[in-house]
């Protein structure tokens, strides 16, 4: 049974019924095929009903679902296990919260980079909860520069609760590392496609987020701050995270409406974790169609359009 979020509770009962019906059928006492089919149909309907009108806070919860696929799962599927991970920033160390390397998607070589969260308690610590240190951003930049040198397009997969706010991170220049990436990505000669697959929190996300096409998965979020921290700053406690999530306009549809991203990638009803392969296929298609279009432009034109796109973002009177 999948882990259910609180607003998915109505499905819980049906899932239990389904399991019971299957059990009975397995024992061979009664033929429950029809009942099973009916319950499955009901679950599908219920799920569609719930997911049709998710609130921003509910989407934030889906984006953090414990079973949601993380960067390396995408990479493994997309590259059909041709991925070669490359390590280290050549200065300080290898950041486990940021992964990257070459891989082939449909026969084409790509440099794929992204923040990586851990799949269990031990791995979450190992991956520092997907919060990179400066060397993570510098590794990402090293790999992007290499992609530029060998004329390979860059894909970044964004999924982070933020850049790590630690003591050593400050000593080693977290701010400078992110700033440098923004500057260098703006003028990188090869196509860059950025996809927010889960959490897109602030500068830590943007540090690998400057691209020709910036896309968001339907149930991901992207903003200047997490709803919890926003609530802490504006209301002095965490209790207003739901209001904060509303106020921040952090969902994919709001971000697209405000022209801060270029597109949305659909997720299966119930979220990416319900059917990861379907999600990966949607992502693959988005990558391949966009890279085709981007390859038709000259590097100079691509960079010009990229800079113009970001320069146009803002709201003044």
């Amino acid at each position: 049974m999948p882990v259910l979020l609180e607003f998915e509770e109505p499905i819980g009962e049906l899932l239990e019924q389904l399991e019971k019906a299957k059990e009975i059928s397995e024992k061979g006492d009664v033929d429950t095929t029809k009942t099973v089919r009916d319950i499955e149909q009901k679950i599908k309907q219920k799920r569609e009903e719930i997911y049709k009108n998710l609130t921003p806070w509910q989407r934030v919860q889906v984006s953090r679902h414990p079973e949601r696929p993380y960067t390396l799962s995408y990479i493994k599927y997309l590259t059909n296990e041709t991925f070669v991970e490359l390590h280290g920033d050549r200065t300080v160390g290898d950041d486990k919260a940021m992964v990257g390397g070459f891989g082939k998607i449909d026969g084409q070589s790509f440099m794929i980079i992204g923040q990586q969260k851990g799949i269990n308690t031990k791995m979450r610590q190992y991956r520092n909860f997907g919060m990179p240190n400066p060397e993570g951003y510098r590794k990402a930049l090293r790999l992007m520069k290499m992609a530029e040198k060998f004329n390979k397009p860059v894909i970044t997969l964004i999924d982070t609760p933020g850049a790590f706010p630690g003591l050593e991170a400050e000593e080693r220049g977290q701010g400078e590392a992110i700033a440098r990436n923004l500057f260098e990505m703006a003028k990188l000669k090869v196509p860059i496609i950025c996809i927010v697959i889960g959490e897109g929190a602030s500068g830590g996300a943007l540090g690998i987020g400057v691209g020709d096409k910036v896309l968001m998965l339907e149930n991901s979020w992207y903003s200047v701050i997490s709803p919890e921290n926003c609530s802490t700053i504006l209301w002095r406690n965490w209790d207003h995270k739901i209001e904060a999530a509303d106020a921040l306009k952090l969902t994919s549809s709001d971000m697209l409406k405000n022209k801060l991203i270029d597109g949305i990638i659909k997720e299966p009803v119930g979220g990416a974790h319900i059917d990861p392969e379907a999600t990966f296929e949607n992502v693959k298609e988005a990558i391949l169609t966009n890279v085709e279009k981007l390859k038709k432009l000259t590097p100079a034109k691509r960079v010009e359009k990229r800079i113009e796109k970001f320069a146009a973002m803002g709201s003044i009177s």
């Binding site: 923004l182 943007l206 400057v210 992207y222 700053i233 921040l248 405000n258 803002g314 709201s315």
Partner: peptide, 26 residues
């Protein structure tokens, strides 16, 4: 830092200013 009340817009000003600085460097 970035202004919270403009959320995503504020965040993108980081990319915007950095991208424009590449023109000065160029």
């Amino acid at each position: 830092g970035a202004r919270m009340m403009e959320a995503g817009f504020s965040l993108m000003q980081m990319a915007k200013t950095s991208a424009k600085l590449t023109l000065l460097a160029e």
